[in-house]
Simulated assay, not measured.
Amino acid sequence: MSQRYRTIQIYLPNGDPTGIRIAELTTSIIRVIEIPRNLVSQFSKTDEANQVGFYFLFGGDNHNEVYIGQSGNLGSRLTQHSKNDDRDWERALAVVSLTNNLTQTHVLYLESISIERAKSCDRYTVINGNGGQRPHTPIPLRDDCDEIHEIASLLMATLGYPVFEPLVDDSKAEEREIFYCTRSGADAKAVYTNEGLVVLKGSRGLLNPTGKSRPDLIKARDRLIERGVIEVQGETTVFTKDWLFSTPSGASNAVAVMPSNGWREWKTFKGVTLDEIYRAEINQKADH
């Protein structure tokens, strides 16, 4: 996504930040509406509910599972999901046009590329049974859809659902600093981002910690094994994908399965800690 200034407004029709939220880019006709499952009936009474659009259902732990769909009548479709769907979803995002000009061809194509790109980014578990139906799409319409998808992605990320945002920007691979955690024989690599610390695919951790661990740390690591983020290989564990931790300590705890201070555990190739690079710089600026 191109990096330029954006102005986004978020409207709360009920005045409740945990209720329905409507996000718009001030220069675009695309609107994203976040709908709690218990407010689907309220949404179904709005004008947007009668539109053609595509949508996302979020569930699972920390809303990390997503179902992606499209419909000629969003209100009716989301009502069906709410009443009859056994999936454990709690929030829906509906993408519509302010001019109501999306067609079934638009949303079929948008559904298909959304499933494809969400799987490629691998932030969320996509629970669709198939990849959607991508119709024949003339080049002008396809270009329109790509622009719609880019704007929808931005609005979704602003609302807290970065489904299509890569964890690590590969276009800046030569610029980024790699941090290493080698505690007690671990061999893990990570990148520090705006969101936290991303442990990179192929990083190796400990299956059985050599020091004093804690049950909560073992349980947290085992949850990642159950989800397929980490797999067991002999006496070590291996990350099967890039994985974001909100804190450096959460990342080092998952690798070493022992209490740790991630700010000091993660170091550059030259041995400079994450703390020395980022927090020390903040402290120096504060002193001045």
Score class of each variant (00 low, 15 high):
residue 88 D to N: 15
residue 88 D to Y: 05
residue 89 W to T: 14
residue 90 E to M: 13
residue 91 R to K: 11
residue 93 L to T: 01
residue 94 A to Y: 13
residue 95 V to T: 04
residue 95 V to P: 10
residue 96 V to A: 14
residue 97 S to L: 13
residue 98 L to P: 07
residue 98 L to R: 10
residue 100 N to H: 10
residue 100 N to T: 13
residue 102 L to C: 02
residue 102 L to D: 03
residue 103 T to H: 00
residue 104 Q to V: 11
residue 104 Q to G: 10
residue 105 T to M: 10
residue 110 L to V: 15
residue 110 L to R: 01
residue 110 L to F: 12
residue 111 E to C: 05
residue 111 E to K: 03
residue 113 I to G: 03
residue 116 E to A: 04
residue 116 E to F: 11
residue 118 A to F: 09
residue 120 S to H: 12
residue 121 C to F: 07
residue 122 D to N: 15
residue 123 R to E: 08
residue 123 R to S: 05
residue 125 T to M: 06
residue 127 I to R: 14
residue 131 G to H: 12
residue 131 G to W: 07
residue 133 Q to K: 12
residue 134 R to H: 03
residue 136 H to R: 12
residue 136 H to E: 15
residue 137 T to H: 03
residue 137 T to Y: 01
residue 138 P to M: 04
residue 138 P to R: 01
residue 139 I to F: 08
residue 139 I to H: 09
residue 141 L to M: 12
residue 141 L to E: 13
residue 142 R to E: 15
residue 145 C to H: 00
residue 146 D to Y: 10
residue 147 E to R: 14
residue 148 I to C: 11
residue 149 H to S: 03
residue 150 E to P: 02
residue 150 E to H: 09
residue 151 I to F: 07
residue 153 S to I: 01
residue 154 L to H: 12
residue 158 T to H: 04
residue 161 Y to W: 11
residue 161 Y to D: 09
residue 163 V to A: 06
residue 166 P to K: 11
residue 167 L to C: 06
residue 168 V to N: 08
residue 169 D to V: 07
residue 170 D to C: 10
residue 171 S to W: 06
residue 175 E to R: 14
residue 179 F to L: 02
residue 182 T to N: 08
residue 182 T to Q: 01
residue 183 R to Q: 08
residue 186 A to Y: 01
residue 189 K to C: 05
residue 189 K to D: 00
residue 189 K to W: 01
residue 190 A to E: 03
residue 190 A to M: 02
residue 192 Y to L: 06
residue 193 T to K: 07
residue 193 T to N: 07
residue 194 N to T: 06
residue 194 N to Q: 15
residue 195 E to Q: 13
residue 196 G to P: 05
residue 196 G to D: 02
